[in-house]
């Protein structure tokens, strides 16, 4: 019955939404890249860079939203680098992505050591505070869970809705999706597949970095070296789980975060004394692999994902 108590508590769902927020940003970012036909394995490193860039900017005196903007720009810069290598040059998206992750991570750690050479523990910043939306936050269960979060969480939901709208209701979105399904048709329309794909990777990478910044600026108030800890790879699994649709990906991220919040609570409860804590910590990664296997049969993979487009070669 312990389990039911947990599932009916507002604090549990509030935690789930909080844990889901960075995943939503990064998953939608990856989804945009993949919809245009580019697998972006730079995600893990870009999240690290975004987490650091946003936090250090605020520490240096920028307002919170200024920090978010810096994270966004840093993410877009790495996205630009990724897209130049993977789109016009058509290099292996696997190798380029891993390379971007290694580069973004090491540049971040290097900068940290150069900027803060003498600190034993990283400084804290004044992070985003929860903002209660009047009236809505009084709804039982749903209110505290959905409407008493930080502004950055609301931004995650708005961004996911906006992405769904742009992808499925605008000509731009049609062009992005077509670039991932049938690039030759896009080129035949006189549009540049290269420009569309590069744009998608740059925008998507910016969102990944904001996802990282959520960790240092909303979930916590400081930067640690291993704080992203594989979340980027989990988001890649979430894109597959969400069948490349923003709405499903959003629900997938919340479901996933709910499992994560649940394992933390079960770990603290009676079961945690019997089962080693490492088993609980493994759950997110194991769940991601399970999600990949379960969805593998039914998934609607963009047809031209990971297929470089070179005009003139048909």
């Amino acid at each position: 019955m312990e389990l039911l108590d947990i599932l009916l508590s507002a604090s549990f769902w509030a935690a789930a939404i909080r844990i889901a927020s960075p995943l939503i940003f990064a998953t939608i970012g990856e989804l945009i890249c993949e919809r245009a036909g580019v697998l972006n394995l730079g995600i893990e490193g870009i999240m690290v860079a975004g987490a650091f860039a946003g936090w250090i900017s605020v520490w240096a005196g920028l307002p919170l939203w200024g920090g978010v903007a810096v994270a966004l720009i840093v993410g877009m810069a790495f996205g630009l680098l990724h897209s130049v290598l993977s789109v016009p040059f058509g290099l292996s998206q696997h190798v380029v992505g891993v390379g971007i992750t290694l580069l973004a991570t090491s540049v971040t750690f290097y900068t940290y050591r150069v900027v803060l050479p003498e600190v034993s523990s990283p400084p804290k910043i004044e992070a985003f505070q929860p903002f209660e939306i009047p009236l809505f936050s009084d709804i039982p269960l749903l209110g505290p869970a959905l409407f008493s979060q930080t502004p950055l969480t609301y931004a995650a939901f708005v961004m996911a809705g906006l992405t769904a709208f742009v992808l499925f209701r605008t000509p731009l979105g049609l062009a992005v999706r077509a670039a991932g399904e049938n690039p030759s048709a896009v080129a035949a329309q006189g549009l540049s597949v290269t420009a569309i794909r590069m744009g998608a990777v740059i925008v998507g990478s910016g969102l990944m970095a904001v996802g990282g910044a959520f960790l240092t600026m909303s979930a916590f108030d400081s930067f640690f070296f291993d704080m992203v800890g594989g979340r980027g790879w989990i988001c890649i699994a979430l894109v597959v789980f969400g069948a490349w649709r923003p709405g499903k990906a959003l629900l997938g991220a919340i479901l996933f975060a709910a499992f994560d919040a649940l394992q933390i609570r079960v770990q603290q409860a009676s079961l945690g004394t019997v089962i080693p804590y490492q088993i609980f910590l493994m759950m997110p990664y194991v769940l991601s692999i399970l999600a990949l296997v379960l969805m593998s049969r039914s998934a609607q993979v963009p047809a031209a994902l990971m297929v470089p487009f070179n005009k003139g070669t048909r």
Binding site: L41, H94, V98, G229, G230, W233, I234, I236, A237, M282, Y285, V286, S288, I289, L292
Partner: peptide, 11 residues
């Protein structure tokens, strides 16, 4: 396998 091998590292 990129994602699964990466996730296996953590596991």
């Amino acid at each position: 396998e990129v994602v699964t091998t990466l996730l296996f590292n953590f596991i």
